[in-house]
């Protein structure tokens, strides 16, 4: 018998700190598998965000830098410009990337910064306890939208991939989900493509991964995946929004 599935080498043998059923763990694994398969761990540097995944510097086996809230793309820019042959990725949540760090995200893409961004969108601020995120859905109840997100008052959710796809510097903008086996496998392909594009020096690549937050959504792990399918995917359609090397939606 052969081992057909095991923990990737690029993940340290440290238990994740995430809540049961939180899909951060799946996405971490996909990134780590990618690093393994491309054989790049030794010259990869990851940038940890502020948010639930702030401590991912303890999980990834490559060198890691923890960035101020929202500034990961700027920190990654510094890392990449300092040692261009290194592979640099950021791992950011929706508050980090699409609210406080909007400028850093957009301008990293504008510059065609040759980095890879893994963007985890779960439509809520997880770390601080379930407040409205820039990606919270219309009418979604959060701690700071207790009557549901009123779009006439709090604005509409931001569709990051669609926005970044309009920029020349973006090489890849793809939205994926990790709600079922097939989607996880697609997500993996997208993440691997994003890293490959960096190796090929194609520019800025972002993979937006629709993800869950059982704790702050008030649902169990399986209900959370169902909620993601029923509510998030319709608002945030999966697909390739920009791909300099292939088909674009």
């Amino acid at each position: 018998m052969a081992v057909v599935f095991q923990k990737p080498q690029a993940l340290l043998d440290v238990p994740f700190t995430y809540c049961p059923g939180c899909t951060h763990g799946i996405i971490h694994r996909l990134v780590a598998e990618t690093i393994d398969e491309l054989g790049i761990e030794g010259h990869t540097v990851g940038v940890a965000p502020v948010g639930c995944s702030v401590m991912n510097y303890n999980f990834f086996a490559c060198d890691m830098v923890q960035a101020p809230h929202g500034r990961a793309p700027a920190v990654a820019t510094g890392l990449k410009r300092a040692i261009p042959e290194n592979i640099v990725f950021t791992y950011q949540g929706d508050g980090d990337l699409a609210a406080i760090g909007t400028a850093e995200t957009v301008h990293a893409a504008v510059r065609g910064e040759n980095i890879t961004v893994v963007f985890v969108n779960n439509a809520i601020y997880g770390m601080t306890g379930g407040q409205m995120a820039p990606t919270s859905l219309p009418n979604q109840v959060t701690q700071t939208t207790p009557y549901g997100r009123d779009t006439s008052y709090s604005g509409h959710p931001i569709r990051v991939c669609e926005m970044l796809a309009t920029l020349e510097g973006t090489a890849l903008a793809q939205r994926v989900s990790v709600d079922n086996v097939k989607n996880v496998q697609n997500a993996k392909k997208a993440i691997k493509k994003a890293f490959t594009y960096q190796i090929e020096k194609r520019g800025f690549s972002i993979v937006e991964v629709l993800s869950t937050c059982p704790t702050n959504w008030g649902l169990d792990a399986q209900e959370s995946l169902q909620w993601l399918r029923d509510n998030m995917i319709p608002y945030y359609p999966l697909g390739v929004y920009k791909d300099v090397g292939g088909t674009t939606k």
Binding site: V45, V47, G78
Partner: peptide, 14 residues
């Protein structure tokens, strides 16, 4: 803000 964080990144790289 971005500039100082780029400094952070480049300095982190040594």
């Amino acid at each position: 803000i971005a500039a100082i964080n780029m400094v952070l990144g480049a300095s982190a790289a040594g």
